[in-house]
Design a protein around this nucleic acid. Structure first.
Lengths: 226, 226
DNA sequence: GACTGTGAATCTATTCACAGCG
DNA sequence: CGCTGTGAATAGATTCACAGTC
C-alpha cells in the first residue's frame, strides 16, 4: 500500500470533492435555498450528476425524489464528515512568505481551523507580530506545544529544514502535519502527513498547455479546435 | 467527460508525480549522482518501485538493466514534458495575502515560471511595489496584457470577483488560468483552468484525523495502532 | 545478480441503465 | 414526468508475474 484509497469508508476522491460541494451548499443556505438537485450542483461545479449522487451516498446523505437534497442536511453531513463543525487548534511553523499568507488567510475559520501559535527559526522574526499573530522562537516549540491543545501543524519552513522540524513536531505529540514544503517527510507511523505541493498544480497546467501546443502543430485527426 | 484522464498520452496521475521525481533527480544531479534505480526513488518518495518504472515508461525514459536510470536524462525528459526547461511569462491578479506570497516565492524559477506583471483592484495597492513587483491597477489589465507575451495567469483575487476577472483574462487572450480562488470558473472552451484549492488538502487531513478518532473509539478488529 | 520493461491481473473510480418513488 | 439510488458495465490506475538484459 503506497496510496490510501479510502478514509474510513469514504473514497478519497469523494472527500476531495466535499469542499466544493460544501462551498456551494453553504452559499445556497445563505441565500435561503432549501433544496438542490444533483443536476444543479453538477452544473455549477462542472461534474456529472451521477457522481454527485454517488458521493452523497457515500457520506450517508439521502435525498428526496422529485425535489432533490435538503441543503441544510447537506451542509451538516459534510461538516461532520470533515470535522469542520467544531474548531480545532493548529500551530504554524515557518513564517516566511507563505506562512505569513496563511496567517492572514481568513477562510480557515470556515474550515474549523484556528491557528493558535506561530514559530520561526529566524531570531529577527521571533518576538514580532505577523498578521496579528505573535511569532515564537523555535527553541520554545516543545514547551509551548505542551501548554497548547493543538493536534495539527502547518509546516511552511524551508525544504532543507522540513524533515528535522517535522520530527520535532511528531515527538512533541502532533498527530497531523500539513506539509507545504515539498520535501517528502519520513515520520513514525501514526503521524498523518498531508502534502500540499503547489508544484503539482503548476505541473498539470504546464503539461496541458504544452500538450495543446504539440497537438496544434499536428494535422487535425478529428474534432475541431478546443 | 468531466474528468480528463490524460494529458497528451500521459496519465494525469503520472504528471502529478513528476514534480517530486524531478525534485529528487535535480538534487541528485547537483550532488553528482549519475544513475538511480526505481527502487531508490520509490524509497525516497514513499512509492512503489513498479510505479516509478511505469511512470518513466509513459514519459519515454528508458533505463539500463543492472544500473538504473541516468539522472541527467531523467531531468531533461521530465523538464521537457512539463515545459519547465524554458521560461514562460505569467501575470498575477490579486495582490492580497496569497498573491503577495506567490510574488515572493523563489521556487517558480525552477519551474520555468516568471511573473512579469501584477494587478490589483484596490487603488491603494496599485502603484506600490510588493516583493519587488510593481502593482498595476485593474483598469490597465487589457492594455498591459497586449504589450506582454504572457499565456498564463495566476488568479488570487477574492472569490466574488473571480468569475468576472477570469473572463476578462480569457478575452484578453490568456490561455491558462491557475485558479487559487476556490470559485468554480465557467469560461469559453479553449481556456485551460487549473484549480488550486487549498481546502482540499485540509479536507483530506481533517477527514483522516476524524476517521482515526472514530476508529480509536471502536474495538480493534484487526491490526495494531496506526 | 540486479536491474528494467511488458502483458496480465487486480483494484478503484466513473459512468450507464434502469428500478423506485413522489 | 423529475428526481434519487442501486447494481452492472466500463475505464483507469496500480500491482503482480516474469521475461529480457547487462
Amino acid at each position: 500500500m503506497a496510496y490510501g484509497y479510502r478514509i474510513g469508508s469514504i473514497p478519497l476522491t469523494t472527500v476531495q470533492r466535499l469542499p466544493s460541494y460544501l462551498r456551494v451548499a453553504r452559499e445556497m443556505r445563505r441565500t435561503g435555498r432549501e433544496v438542490v438537485s444533483s443536476n444543479r450542483l453538477a452544473e455549477l461545479l462542472g461534474l456529472e450528476a451521477i457522481q454527485v449522487r454517488k458521493d452523497f451516498g457515500f457520506i450517508g446523505i439521502t435525498g428526496l425524489p422529485k425535489t432533490g437534497y435538503p441543503v441544510e442536511e447537506l451542509v451538516r453531513a459534510m461538516e461532520h464528515c470533515l470535522n469542520w463543525n467544531r474548531v480545532r487548534d493548529a500551530v504554524l511553523v515557518g513564517v516566511g512568505h507563505l506562512g505569513t499568507a496563511l496567517l492572514g488567510y481568513e477562510g480557515f475559520a470556515a474550515h474549523g481551523l484556528n491557528i493558535c501559535a506561530a514559530f520561526d527559526h529566524d531570531p529577527r522574526r521571533a518576538g514580532t507580530v505577523v498578521n496579528g499573530m505573535p511569532v515564537t522562537a523555535m527553541e520554545d516549540l516543545e514547551p509551548v506545544l505542551r501548554r497548547l491543545d493543538a493536534r495539527m501543524a502547518i509546516l511552511t519552513v524551508a525544504p532543507e529544514a522540513a524533515q528535522e522540524v517535522a520530527l520535532r513536531l511528531a515527538r512533541a505529540g502532533i498527530e497531523g502535519i500539513w506539509n507545504f514544503t515539498g520535501y517528502p517527510l519520513t515520520l513514525p507511523a501514526g503521524v498523518i502527513v498531508q502534502d500540499q505541493d503547489i508544484a503539482i498544480g503548476l505541473a498539470v497546467l504546464s503539461a496541458k498547455l504544452s500538450a495543446r501546443d504539440e497537438a496544434a502543430a499536428l494535422p487535425d485527426p478529428e474534432g475541431g479546435p478546443g
